[in-house]
């Protein structure tokens, strides 16, 4: 290990961490946003569900490096443009996330939805005020997986010359320099962990009932009947 190298290259490391974040945050967010209407659709129609899940599986099976070459060819951009990587990662994120989103909406208790309709929610109001929040916990679980997978997958982009934490692996390989590889690995892990913490905090902030429900479920004294649609 060459600890001195780390000290001398803090700027480089910091810069690549930022690159990495800039390349991976948009695909995670866009993947989530796009998965919501698709997942909702899939939860409503069996045909839509089959088609979307098969498509998702196919996209996820395409090797990353092939997709990185394919995207600029299909979209007519330069092969070194970081946007290609963002698009490719978004496709993977969406492919993974569609299944979670479909399950999330399918798991929203039917009687709660029907009750919201009976008291006068319009379809849109019901979607945003009832179905989306109740799909939240499963969506969160899904997006946490997508987040980790995206952060690790982004390294591949370095192979096509898109600068990010993966570039450390390529340098390390070319120069047979172990320190750089370890720095790359640790940095990727840290970025993934930070993303995960941020997602969990957002989840708690946006879904306060989710934690309290769980606590109530653990304390039977609070309950004489099981929670309706509660998270057990």
């Amino acid at each position: 290990m060459d600890w001195g190298w780390i000290g001398r290259n803090l700027d480089l490391i910091g810069g690549r961490v930022l690159e990495h974040v800039a390349l991976t945050a948009p695909p995670i967010v866009i993947g989530l946003v796009l998965s919501i209407p698709l997942g909702y659709w899939a939860s409503r129609s069996r045909v839509a569900r089959s088609i979307l899940l098969v498509l998702g599986n196919i996209v996820y099976t395409i090797p990353a490096i092939a997709l990185l070459v394919l995207v600029p060819v299909l979209l007519g951009g330069a092969i070194l443009d970081p946007v290609n990587l963002v698009i490719a990662l978004t496709l993977y994120a969406l492919a993974l996330m569609v299944r979670s989103a479909a399950d999330a909406f399918a798991a929203v208790p039917h009687d709660v939805v029907s009750s919201a309709t009976s008291i006068g929610y319009s379809a849109w109001q019901r979607f945003f005020a009832v179905e989306l929040p109740l799909a939240g916990p499963v969506l969160l679980a899904g997006i946490r997986v997508v987040s980790v997978s995206t952060v690790s997958l982004a390294s591949v982009g370095a192979l096509t010359g898109i600068e990010n934490l993966g570039s450390f692996f390529i340098d390390a390989f070319q120069r047979q320099f172990l320190t750089e590889a370890l720095v790359g690995i640790v940095a990727v892990l840290v970025v993934a962990a930070v993303f995960d913490v941020v997602l969990q905090l957002l989840g708690r902030l946006l879904m306060p009932w989710n934690r309290r429900n769980r606590r109530a479920a653990e304390n039977p004294a609070l309950l004489r009947t099981p929670p309706i649609g509660g998270v057990a």
């Binding site: 208790p109 009687d111 709660v112 029907s114 009750s115 919201a116 309709t117 009976s118 008291i119 006068g120 929610y121 319009s122 005020a129 009832v130 929040p133 109740l134 879904m207 009932w209 989710n210 429900n213 929670p227 309706i228 649609g229 509660g230």
Partner: peptide, 21 residues
């Protein structure tokens, strides 16, 4: 329908409360 339902109280077996509210 939406307007109609807002003017009629509806109470069902499992209370039908919104669990996140």
């Amino acid at each position: 329908p939406v307007q109609l339902r807002r003017g009629i109280g509806y109470i069902m077996q499992n209370s039908g409360l919104l669990p996140h509210r």
